[in-house]
Design a protein around this nucleic acid. Structure first.
Lengths: 203, 203
DNA sequence: AAGATTTTCGAATCCTGGTTAGAATGTGAG
DNA sequence: CTCACATTCTAACCAGGATTCGAAAATCTT
């Protein structure tokens, strides 16, 4: 067998692969697609550049996986948070919970999402295919949330939910450019963003 | 004299320089800092790469000027629009006018602003100094607008104007990532964004 | 129109960074 | 302890792309 009877070896290997992926997410989110050098990724991962090729076919493969993971992970996270809500949560409550989950995940937890969000417009087309599918499915979640709120009559009558949704996601995604934990608490940011939804979109 | 009696030669030279700068803004906004190749810029400008060196000292000089111009131009544009408002315009009216000006300028007129906005986080430190000064001065405009509106009692009492301002600028800046003239009219986008301010921040 | 000056270009240089090859090291199995 | 395999490294290799260097081409001046 290639793996030992236990998965000790495999586990270590998986950990290294993960370390490289994490490093790539970090570098990618700070330097952009073209600025991401394998040597830098290797540095952060504590490894030499050629070692990356043991786990990934090419630089582009690595980048693609980061982009995909970025979209995938927020989606799963937000889905879980919403699913865990009590049944009597109103559609608007769900949106507010999603705002909370999205912001906290993006700003505290994951370089992946930052990387995927910042580079969506810059990576070459062929790397965008798989990530785009994940993003589409994430968009759908938000679209559904807003539709539900609209059907429940919880939103302003003259609100264009498509534009509002995009503006909202934009303001949250942009927060990675300016939010600084030492200047402003994440709690305040979340609260103000939720207020923005309540007042800006609520009936 | 190096210039002719008229400024015919100089004018043509200026035009070429401008063409290169425009091309750089376009490429930079699409490919990012590290992805911007002089050969591509030259292509778009209709010139060979070495010609760029006749007008700019280096690739970085060129990039810096684009970034600076991006911040500078919106600032001047928005300032002019606000200055042209009638004296009896309320502070909130001014904010709405600024929203209109910012969105239209960014989405219709200038690749520069898009370039500067998208690459703010990616260009190396030493290229950020001069552009950053312009950005700071642009921020001040918005800060002042919101302060005035707050003092005039036109904003919700519990609104954090700093966070709101950043969220708003974020949602507008992000629009360059998704707005498509064929899908949605710019007028609608402007109107909805203004509604977002009126309802989201208004008293 | 000839000479001077400005502008542009083609070719060569040089450095950076992705990628490959093959050797060295580590690790589990018998 | 030794073999087989997994993992990582060092040392090239090579292409792409910024920059430089004269030489052409365009433009201006007289």
């Amino acid at each position: 067998m290639s793996q030992s009877s236990e998965d000790g070896a495999t586990a270590k290997s998986q950990r290294t692969r993960q370390r490289i992926l994490d490093a790539a997410a970090q570098v990618l989110s700070r330097k952009g697609y073209a600025g991401t050098r394998l040597a830098d990724v290797a540095d952060v991962a504590g490894v030499q550049a050629p070692a990356i090729y043991y786990y990934f076919g090419s630089r582009d493969d690595l980048v693609e996986e980061v982009m995909w993971a970025g979209a995938h992970r927020v989606r799963v996270h937000v889905e879980e948070v919403i699913a865990a809500l009590p049944d009597d949560a109103t559609p608007l409550d769900r949106i507010l919970a999603a705002v909370d989950a999205h912001l906290r995940y993006e700003l505290q937890i994951s370089d992946y999402t930052t990387a995927s969000v910042r580079n969506a417009g810059q990576v070459p087309e062929h790397l965008r295919v798989r990530p785009a599918a994940e993003e589409a499915s994430y968009s759908r979640i938000w679209r559904d949330l807003f539709h539900a709120a609209q059907d429940a009559g919880q939103l302003r009558a003259d609100l264009d939910i498509n534009i509002f949704r995009l503006l909202l996601l934009g303001s949250m995604n942009w927060a990675v450019e300016w939010w600084n934990p030492r200047t402003r608490s994440l709690d305040d940011l979340v609260r103000q963003t939720q207020d923005l939804v309540r007042h800006g979109a609520g009936a």
